[in-house]
Simulated assay, not measured.
Amino acid sequence: MNRKVVVSFSGGKDSMLSLHKVISLGYEPIALMTTVNKKNDESWFHNISIELLKQVSLAVNIPLLLIECEGDNYEKYFENALNNMRLLGAEACVFGDIDIEQHREWGEKRCQNTNLSALFPLWKENREKLVNEFINLGYKAIIKKVNLNNMSSEFLGKTLSSEILKDIKATGSDVCGENGEYHTFVYNGPIFLKEISLKGHRNIMNNNSILLELC
């Protein structure tokens, strides 16, 4: 019997690559767990609509678990969800962090408090190697959010490719966007049963960032 896991899922390239890797290693993902901001019904960090997250869940045939969170009690809501997943058979939670120690410590603490293991399939891999691996596997990710302190608005709405990575690198930004230079939404790839159709977008200015609202 495969070991059951829950995936901390943002909808972006790193969490998708982590999901791909654990499936390849023989784990059984029983849920994509995404935190949602109660104020706007979008994913907490990547501002992805609940409707699109549901489409991803159907496309990869893995149930979606939405966690409505408030900033002050974020850890509490996250741990409550992990406890529920453990009761459903999950033995570990999968995270897409690469090399930021405080992010790993946060995930490990949540798992420690809920008697789960913490898995980090991308940990300490080369950032550029990982994003190239993601593209070479055949995944498609649209740039959903851009930090204007690092990159121009011209990158918004572009699908990651080898050429786009060269352009990102030329700005002096981390090619993987691990420092918050950009965020993505994955809409197709080898574990997808069908591509997600994207339409009806508009730009929203938010402090020093520009967002692409997808539907």
Rank of each mutant, 00 (worst) to 15 (best):
S117Y: 09
C111N: 10
N113T: 08
V146D: 01
I142L: 03
V131K: 06
L130S: 13
C111T: 15
G138F: 12
N132L: 08
N132E: 09
G138C: 14
I142S: 02
N149C: 01
F120W: 14
I143Y: 00
E101G: 12
P121G: 07
E101V: 14
A141T: 02
R104A: 14
T114K: 09
H103P: 14
W106T: 14
G138M: 07
L148C: 02
F120E: 06
E133G: 07
N126K: 15
F120T: 08
G138D: 13
S117C: 15
E105D: 08
I98S: 01
N149W: 00
K129L: 05
L148I: 04
E108M: 07
N136A: 12
G138L: 12
K129W: 07
L137G: 10
N147I: 03
S153L: 03
N149Y: 01
Q112I: 05
I142Q: 03
S152L: 05
R104D: 09
K144S: 03
K140N: 10
N136Y: 08
D99R: 03
E133P: 13
V146S: 02
G138Y: 03
N126W: 13
R127G: 12
N132C: 04
S153H: 06
Q112G: 05
W123F: 09
K109D: 13
L119S: 05
I142Y: 01
N147F: 00
N150M: 00
F134L: 11
N126D: 15
E105V: 11
E133S: 09
W123I: 08
G107S: 10
L122A: 11
E105F: 12
A141E: 00
R104Y: 13
N147T: 00
L116I: 12
I142K: 03
L119K: 06
K129E: 10
Q112F: 05
V146W: 02
G107T: 08
N113M: 13
S152Y: 06
V146K: 03
V131S: 05
W123Q: 12
I143D: 02
K129T: 10
L122C: 05
D99M: 07
H103W: 07
K144A: 01
I98N: 04
E128R: 04
E101T: 14
T114R: 06
E125T: 09
R104I: 08
Q102H: 08
E128Y: 00
L119F: 07
L116C: 14
A141I: 02
N136H: 12
G138T: 15
W123E: 10
E128H: 01
R127M: 07
N132T: 04
V131G: 09
L122T: 12
A118Q: 15
N126T: 11
S153E: 09
I100M: 04
K109N: 14
L116A: 12
S152F: 05
L116R: 08
E101Q: 15
N150A: 01
R110P: 12
W123H: 13
G138A: 13
V131T: 14
K109S: 15
R127H: 11
E125A: 10
I143Q: 00
I143K: 02
I100Y: 09
Q102G: 03
D99F: 09
L130V: 13
E108H: 07
N147Q: 00
M151P: 01
F134M: 08
E133Y: 08
G107D: 10
N126Y: 11
